[in-house]
């Protein structure tokens, strides 16, 4: 039995589409109600969790593999293997600021609001820039409008939300997409099962 953790929501839907395409019987998922664990074909035991928890479950090996966004992988920075780019859930990490504010040329101290303090810290460290980071849990765009921060670091898909709030991307940090992550011990002890599962996903992606 391969224990799989899926990030609830869009990534979950896309992964299940791939499994269906590969011919896996996904009917138990149709009316799953509030059940948190679903078994498919006696081969896959699937749990549904928040992105951060997917990484936690995989890190401890209670889930062998997981589907999770690169944004969460970068933010949590845990010792897990990332073996496949699933090429969906595509977006990017970017620095965004109000028009005509370029924090890279400011000579005063800069404040950045973000949901991703670790990604933000390591990015500005790599540029040798000292910044103050404020952690915000949702709608980070508000922080520069309310003058709490000079700029934000966030995931950007189309940039529409930014634009509507008077912000624009001033620097892209990195691309993001959904990844297949694996527990390092599981990759070794369940090598055949994991290999089969990743091939199954590959075949559906290229179909």
């Amino acid at each position: 039995m391969l224990n799989i953790a899926l990030t609830k929501g869009r990534l979950e839907d896309r992964t299940i589409e791939l499994l269906k395409k590969a011919g896996v019987d996904c009917s138990p998922l149709l009316n799953k109600g509030r059940k948190l664990i679903i078994t498919l074909e006696d081969k896959y035991s699937i749990i549904f969790a928040k992105a951060n928890d997917v990484i936690t479950y995989v890190e401890y090996g209670v889930s062998d593999v997981g589907v999770v966004g690169k944004d969460t992988i970068l933010e949590m920075n845990r010792p897990i293997y990332e073996i496949m780019d699933l090429n969906f859930g595509k977006c990017s990490f970017a620095v965004a600021a109000p028009h005509n504010v370029n924090i890279f040329t400011l000579d005063k101290s800069t404040t950045i609001a973000t949901k991703y303090p670790n990604v933000t810290r390591s990015y500005f460290e790599s540029l040798n820039m000292d910044v103050d980071i404020v952690k915000i849990e949702g709608s980070v765009e508000l922080a520069p409008i309310l003058k709490l921060a000079d700029a934000i670091v966030d995931i950007v898909e189309t940039g529409k939300t930014l634009k509507e709030n008077g912000l624009e991307v001033i620097r892209k940090i990195t691309d993001i997409s959904a990844r297949l992550v694996v527990n390092p011990v599981s990759l070794k002890l369940k090598a055949a099962e994991i290999d089969l599962f990743s091939k199954l996903l590959t075949s559906s992606i290229t179909k």
Binding site: P79, E82, I83, M84, D85, R179, L187
Partner: peptide
Amino acid sequence: ATKNYPDLL
């Protein structure tokens, strides 16, 4: 070391 196959590619 981290078996990051997408990055290797």
